[in-house]
Design a protein around this nucleic acid. Structure first.
Lengths: 198, 198, 198, 198
DNA sequence: AATGAATGAGGTTTCATTCAT
DNA sequence: GATGAATGAAACCTCATTCAT
């Protein structure tokens, strides 16, 4: 039987550590975000990634380590290289873009990760730290007239708002919210965020 | 069969089925709301309620049944007997009271429950139905000028907002949000809800 | 099909916690003594005892706990109620009886337990403590003329001697040692112990 | 095939098969002797030797093969070239030197290895054969007045004694045995061995 | 010769559930 | 009505081993 060079259709993936690691991360992020920490089994993640379960331990040490690595990722904020001191409006647009209908699905999953409890104390602390970091990063360029703590509080309320709506839209068939036009949702949320952030 | 009063042979425990059932429900609601479905073990629920684990299966059939029964409860809305056609402001106040700092802790847990997935499709459908029902109930008395669907959408956005903030405040130590004064939070959220609901 | 009352031949054992616990302990002691801690699997122990694996965790918490419970047992020494201040010779006879050919097989296994390393640090400490306790208990009634530390040292050497011979005789087919007459072995060891203990 | 010196392209590692094999054997002997067969992982052995795990399979076929190769080594007995017919006393001194405080640590590990079961029947038979061979070799020059079988039995008892004491002294902190002066131990054991071997 | 990626089997443990009392 | 003994499935993780480079 001739060993014809197979076209790389699927299940080829010949021993590429970086690719494997990345596949696992992607699969894990999706599961963790959509089903929560406890409900996510390592087998399901490995199955999604198409590799053996024990590779998770090889690359991430443990389930907790996998979760931590999922959180450990460039969180979607404004791009400081393009707009060093962005206006409130541009910050709002960025938030809306990522939370309501971002260009990439992974970003929405990344946000959802921040809302799922895990009961695992270690993972939960990681999550809370990531949430705090994100809010701080968002609040930083906003030069409000008031003190920093209150500004941070308002950013966190805005984040909570977006996370709650995102979770509701993602996890359950609640109508009309789930099939509403994203433009409409953005139009409705824009003044909300503006009210909170100014 | 007559319920003959048993003679008090020993230190007779109450053996009150209704009370046992209710204890289990309370304990389960708290665990499900705070830790999620998968992370909640039946043993922990039974332990909180102070009864034997097997009683959960006896009374609710299964873990899923217990979760479903937790959802099955009068959700906090306005009281139609007192104010048959409430103003938007009173609706908002009711929502804020329950979501931010309600008089009864159980109500907040009940709300949180609406955000927790259960992995089980049956229970999950119950949850989504409960969420839809709640939003419908809230939207009902609101006589906006526009069509009903859009009103419902806006109520659901408002609900999602409150749920997200509630979840963030409840499950993780995110500062300053978690230790912020509830009056301040209500003050900040009031215009948000008003903007969404009118 | 008639549900004829089966005679209690085997695999009956109807829900007797004490009996189950004891079966597990007996099976575990044998496995731990003959194969060592790491090589002993909980499945094999449960299989020997004829019960489900998870009962080990139910009754002993963990594999370590099972090992600890195996050590936690009246170690064979002299009977203080019969001979409050035994002569050296009677102590020697007791040791020989238990180590070489005790009346009960379990006692020999119990002794063997003291020699098997476990690599598990917790279990190992338990074992070393048990060994120290046993030697102290044996040395106590021996009123030698010298200081206590040296007496304890000699008792421990005697114990090591017996343990080594017991292990060699138990675990491998080394001839002629393994099939030698126990009377002959005792006759050979008696002066050895007497030399060490006096 | 000529062993052409490869050009030093980069920091060329030695790639010395014999040395690698020997490093693995040394590391494995230590682990097997001190922690037992099951508790010894191939990764730990490879780590100690500073080489890749797969090399164990390459050189020894399997974990069992590694264990068997560890046994396969000149066991410490008397040196027949120097004393063709040694006295009992010199044999005793040799045994004491190796078991209690030999010049080389590896020898003591080698002795300990004889007491460790390996769960694998093949390797275990090798071990028992090594033990029998060692006792035969020791008994050979001893010209006792009795029949050979009894002499062999007494040698094996002496070996068991030394192995038991060695194991007790090596693997657990049993005081005062473990920190006792080796001279004192030898003094105590010398008459024991003399009693057994004559 | 040597490495590291990948696999599959099996270990301990937890959990929901059923059975007998 | 209630308890606790017992089970079986599945979870996370480790380990020996093989494959491709």
């Amino acid at each position: 039987m001739a060993n014809t060079p197979r076209p790389p259709t699927a299940t080829v993936l010949p021993r590429d550590a970086a690719r494997t690691r990345s596949s696992l991360l992607d699969a894990a992020r999706r599961r963790f975000a959509l089903e929560g920490y406890s409900a996510t089994t390592m087998r399901s993640v490995a199955g999604d990634a198409g590799v053996n379960v024990s590779l998770i331990n090889r690359y991430f040490g443990s389930k907790e380590g996998l979760f931590a690595s999922c959180l450990d990722r460039g969180l979607p904020t404004h791009d400081p290289s393009r707009a060093p001191s962005p206006s409130v409006d541009s910050v709002i647009e960025t938030m809306l873009r990522y939370a309501v209908d971002g260009p990439d699905d992974d970003d929405r999953l990344q946000l959802l990760l921040l809302l799922r409890t895990s009961e695992d104390p270690v993972a939960d602390n990681l999550r809370s730290a990531a949430l705090t970091a994100l809010s701080t990063k968002i609040a930083e360029p906003l030069t409000g007239g008031d003190d920093g703590d209150d500004r941070l509080l308002r950013v966190q309320l805005a984040l909570g708002t977006l996370l709650g709506i995102l979770a509701t839209r993602t996890s359950t068939p609640v109508e009309p919210l789930c099939s509403a036009d994203t433009d409409r949702i953005r139009d409705l949320l824009r003044p909300v965020l503006r009210g909170l952030l100014t």
